[in-house]
């Protein structure tokens, strides 16, 4: 047997590749909106804030995803409340809320016996994912994909020019909560598979890479998805040979694609910018 094909003889590897690609695609599509809206930090915050929700959901016997979802939403609404009712700015308010919620989750975790491993939530367990988790991830990811693609034009307008959106009677408050819920759902869908740390990377990097490579939104969606899926597949595959952290390999591959895009992008890349400058100063 060809040693390069060795990973594919294990079912857990195939599963990891599939789930990784699906999660990567959903995160990538959402990351395009987050990057354009300037919400990258929001992904970070929501990802951390889901922790107490997970523990509490376990305690009451709800699906962990439900607890995580509402905990994530709570983070965003609490941030909004603090911003509106004090002189604290939004990014600061977000920092206070999500670290507080995360800490609350940590304390709960140490006090309550759960069958969830903290390590799995932080760093994921793509290779050890259960069928049940896989189905849950696929369902949430599927719903998120459909909603974001159906609403993409309104969401894009909301990111680009909320003033115009409002003036033509679009409900921008609803769009805000749709985008927020999509974000929370994506975090939930990805959490079991890839962990909080990786979700943050997957919610930011693919959109950024694509943003450097194109000036058209629909291309951006495609490039981001492509780069994320490629990173997930390559990351999982490489991690088999390195026998290293799967999540780490995925993020590293993604970061590498970003660096390449930053240097070689056809219009916004460093090289092209450098030559353009040289040309200008020469003429």
């Amino acid at each position: 047997m060809n040693p390069l094909l060795a990973p594919f003889q294990y079912e857990f590897m195939i599963q990891a590749l599939l789930v990784g690609a699906l999660v990567g695609a959903v995160c990538a599509i959402l990351s395009c909106f987050l990057v354009l809206k300037g919400w990258s930090l929001m992904g970070d915050a929501v990802s951390h804030a889901v922790l107490p929700g997970i523990v509490l959901a376990y305690l009451i016997g709800l699906p962990l995803a439900v607890g995580a979802f509402f905990s994530g939403l709570l983070c965003a609404t609490a941030t909004g409340f603090i911003k509106d009712h004090s002189r604290v700015k939004e990014d600061t308010a977000m920092g206070i809320v999500f670290t507080g919620l995360f800490a609350f989750g940590l304390v709960l975790f140490t006090k309550i016996e759960t069958d969830v491993h903290l390590n799995h939530i932080l760093f994921g367990s793509l290779l050890g994912i259960s069928t049940e988790d896989m189905i849950q991830t696929a369902i949430v990811a599927g719903i998120t994909l459909v909603v974001v693609l159906l609403w993409r034009k309104d969401l894009l307008l909301f990111c680009f020019d909320p003033g115009h959106a409002r003036s033509i009677g679009l409900n921008t408050k609803r769009l805000y909560y749709i985008l927020l819920s999509l974000l929370a759902a994506t975090v939930v869908a990805s959490l079991q598979a890839v962990g909080i740390i990786l979700v943050i990377a997957m919610l930011i990097t693919p959109g950024c890479t694509a943003y450097l490579l194109t000036d058209r939104f629909h291309h951006m969606l495609g490039i981001a998805t492509g780069s994320a899926v490629l990173s997930c597949l390559s990351g999982v595959y490489i991690s088999y040979f390195l026998n290293g952290s799967t999540a780490g390999c995925i993020v590293l591959f993604q970061s590498m694609l970003f660096v390449l895009a930053m240097i070689f992008a056809p219009k916004h890349g460093l090289l092209v910018q450098h030559f353009l400058k040289a040309e200008k100063s020469a003429s």
Binding site: L36, K153, L157, G163, H164, S167, I168, G169, F217
Partner: peptide
Amino acid sequence: NWVAYVPQSEEVDWSFPVSVWDVVLMGRYG
């Protein structure tokens, strides 16, 4: 759709990945 607003240039994110055509079509969204 009776009230149309032409924003100040500083309010617009000019690096946003949309074309002239996309922007004008946004006027028709309503």
